[in-house]
Design a protein around this nucleic acid. Structure first.
Lengths: 141, 141
DNA sequence: GTGATTGCAAATCTTTTGCACTAAA
DNA sequence: TTTAGTGCAAAAGATTTGCAATCAC
């Protein structure tokens, strides 16, 4: 059974995927609905896989990995490096930064206007600045 | 054969290790000499392992990994996250930031005074700022 | 001697890939 | 029907670990 709002959500999601050049398959729609349900989610592949299972979305772990990578390439997601050996995916693709709660392994958004970088070095010859990542690492007080 | 300057270097390295609470073993001394030969080196475990082999230092890859981790814990090295699935180790432990040449997978130091952060958000309740990492990601121009 | 360290191989963990099957257009 | 996408299992790559042998103190 599908409610009206779910149907609407799916239609929006399908358009979003199509606009990104991705076929709106059942798995991609399901994962996108999970990812973009809230405003700023930070998930690992394993976490999203667990959520999909909990939501009775039949999808393999390999497809979760592949889909996350495709979403990043398509500009729907941003990859955030906070810990060695584990990738976080951020549904907030606007310009912003992050707190990283080291003990919990948890990311938290910092709005772009909460950080102001007054001075940046010039890029070395032959190089262009692609992005400036600021990660504020946090400990328990 | 060992030259005088090598002997001196080893004595300094041994003190440095002892001060950090680590026994100055042959492997640790050898790796430390390689690491701290220059001012600001950025190496991966595999790179350091290759260097050790080239320098006829007999050490296993596992020991390279373990030693790097111990050096980080002891405050002799800093781990830098720039790429998913690969850890870089920085011999410069003073406050500074990084360029990351994405295409080459290469880190470059940015002196602390070349970046000025005019505004930072307050840490969430119960948390302390441990460190602020700034990584300037670079593309080919 | 005694406890820390090392080496090796095996284990672990995250992520990617090959290929037969299925689904979207 | 044609091409893209999926699932599974296997591979790949980075890193860690168990344990016997070795080294520093």
């Amino acid at each position: 059974m599908q409610t009206n709002s779910e149907a609407l959500e799916n239609a929006e999601t399908q358009n979003r995927l199509r606009d990104a050049g991705l076929r709106p398959t059942r798995q991609r729609i399901g994962l996108a609905n999970l990812l973009f349900a809230g405003d700023c989610r930070h998930v690992t592949a394993e976490e999203l896989f667990a959520e999909a299972n909990a939501a009775a979305l039949s999808v393999s772990l390999a497809t979760v990995y592949n889909t996350l990578r495709q979403f990043v390439d398509a500009g729907l997601l941003r990859e955030v490096l906070a810990e060695p050996g584990r990738a976080y995916f951020d549904t907030n693709i606007s310009d912003h930064h992050h707190f990283f709660h080291v003990a919990e392994g948890r990311l938290e958004d910092v709005p772009a206007d909460a950080v102001s970088i007054a001075k940046l070095p010039v890029a070395p010859a032959g190089a262009n600045v692609e992005r400036v990542d600021v990660i504020i690492r946090l400990n328990k007080a």
